[in-house]
Nucleic acid binder design. Sequence first.
DNA 1: GGCAGGCGTTTGAACGATCACAATCAGGAG
DNA 2: CTCCTGATTGTGATCGTTCAAACGCCTGCC
Lengths: 349, 349
Amino acid sequence: MAGPGSERAERRATVDSVAEHAGVSRQTVSNALNAPHKLRPETLERVRKSISDLGYRPNNAARTLRTQSTRLLACRLLPSNVNGTGGVLDSFLHALCASARDRGYDVLAFHAANDDDEIEVFHDLLQRHAVDGVVLTNTHFTDPRTHWLLANDLPFVAFGRPWGQARPRHSWVDVDGAAGVERAVERLVELGHRRVGFLGWPKGSGSGDDRCRGWERAMERFRLPTRGLLARSEDGIAAGAEMAGRLLDRARPASAIVCVSDALAVGALRAVADRGLRAGQDVSIVGFDDSPVASVVRPGLASLRQPLEAVAEKVVDALLCRLAEGRTRRVELLVPPSLVERASLGPPT
Amino acid sequence: MAGPGSERAERRATVDSVAEHAGVSRQTVSNALNAPHKLRPETLERVRKSISDLGYRPNNAARTLRTQSTRLLACRLLPSNVNGTGGVLDSFLHALCASARDRGYDVLAFHAANDDDEIEVFHDLLQRHAVDGVVLTNTHFTDPRTHWLLANDLPFVAFGRPWGQARPRHSWVDVDGAAGVERAVERLVELGHRRVGFLGWPKGSGSGDDRCRGWERAMERFRLPTRGLLARSEDGIAAGAEMAGRLLDRARPASAIVCVSDALAVGALRAVADRGLRAGQDVSIVGFDDSPVASVVRPGLASLRQPLEAVAEKVVDALLCRLAEGRTRRVELLVPPSLVERASLGPPT
DNA sequence: GGCAGGCGTTTGAACGATCACAATCAGGAG
DNA sequence: CTCCTGATTGTGATCGTTCAAACGCCTGCC
């Protein structure tokens, strides 16, 4: 009866029409939706029936005007190939939209060429009261956006740590890259590996250094040698093949390699194959991000999957908390990635 | 003075505060924004100064409530790997957001698992007056969404042809895949090729069949033989390598292959390399979509680039036209892709 | 019987913009 | 000097909702 497609566009139901239909007043209908406990059960029931009979839903604009809350969150679209995060932020946006909608919010996506451009959009959205809050992605060192948002009192939560800020004043959620890599090494050691290498990005990137630290921590914890088992370079398949080659051509070669990205890991797989070795048997390879290629390449690439659904959920939680309670509570949360095991992961020969 | 970050959050400027500041009435301020020709130039100037002095921008909600227009367009997020369209719809969304913003609109992105789910969201957005219109992507045969949108009178424009609808009743914009492929073949013939093959998807997909028709058209136009030069299969690198292999291993092998997707084209490149041939010299390969991989693989993959910025612009134009004028005009537009030439394209030996 | 107090409900006002219409003004014709 | 006309500017109502406060009813207490 009230399902999609049933009612025609006659005229939209309003709180008044529902009130008349149910034989109560405007406010009672409003309360039925926003404070059901204030109604006598039988009244509530009657109003609810009228609401569903008429297919009523509160008009967004009117509600927004009165409550000053738009139930919209802004999030910038990032080019999917930025910073080697291919597809990750895209998936995050999906999860964000889903999480937000579960809680009655929607996501306003916008395009910005750079940080200053993004701030310009924030300015516009703030002035026009177009959104309640902002989700920041791809945070980095000396990020001008956090300062602007704090100064202009626009609520926000970051997906990404406040890199370089000793005393962050905002909530953030991030993936614990170090813990993920540490877990991967732990698993490799469990399988019997002792010479575990790491392919990283050049020093200076927040998440790259973080993931590398996880490898260092694990190697130290298990008292394993690290000499000649670490290589760094820009992202890419060719770079991965080249670096992995160096680790494999040593007198005492690596028997397993954890990589800071899937692109480097795919390169590592190639280096293994080029040497007539079998990935997952002679040498184990683990990537990061569990990107679509990971399940497509042969052999399947084990990879550390970022829990984007969980991150999105926590981000929305934190933002709604900020909206509801103001600055009382600050959320700082690290979520560990999970190791997706595939054929490229196995015991050493 | 009025740049981002200048004014504090004291209290937001309203139309009244601007009026007071400029020494005019509410309505005059409103006219300055919505009907500037009604003001005497000196008054207009004065009001404009006050507006920028106070950093005033009209409150979205209030304007929406009065005018019944939200200045928001809805667009579904699609998984980036659906239907081999990897990243294309993501890029389209970027362009859409940019185009919409240029015209004073914003984009509400939402997640939906399937068409019915999407309709459910439409229903919600319509009831709540949350958006003015909808941009439909990834249209396909027997698409329930167009019918629902028409029946419920929610304005929309589709990126994608109304596949299977003899008499479409809505506006749409699409990429002319056939023309693009035809252009690619034309270019190959220009370079001296005569045996041009095509790798397609299985029959039944709108865009796949369309692109294939372009190849057939061109081959007919140039009176070239087609026998044994066409292969079809699901998308994927392995499938591309396998099919290209068949075209190359014939007694009279293809000297050039146009592919319905970059994934198949990358496979074709591999098949060429596996046979000790050089792509771009011994065999030319052309892909479709100009995805990120096209510029990364060696040799660079020539590819047909979808003009997503142009499509997005036209879609927004058409939708705004629909919003302004109702059903008076229907837009049906095909935009040709452009051939991005890279090393995989060259004259035959 | 009168009155405080809790509960459930109704009423009036407000959110900030635009629309429709009324009021004002300047300048020229009668 | 009055009246009219056309161009600008000002005022009240309105969009649909929620907030704040008032209201009526009932119970229980003195």
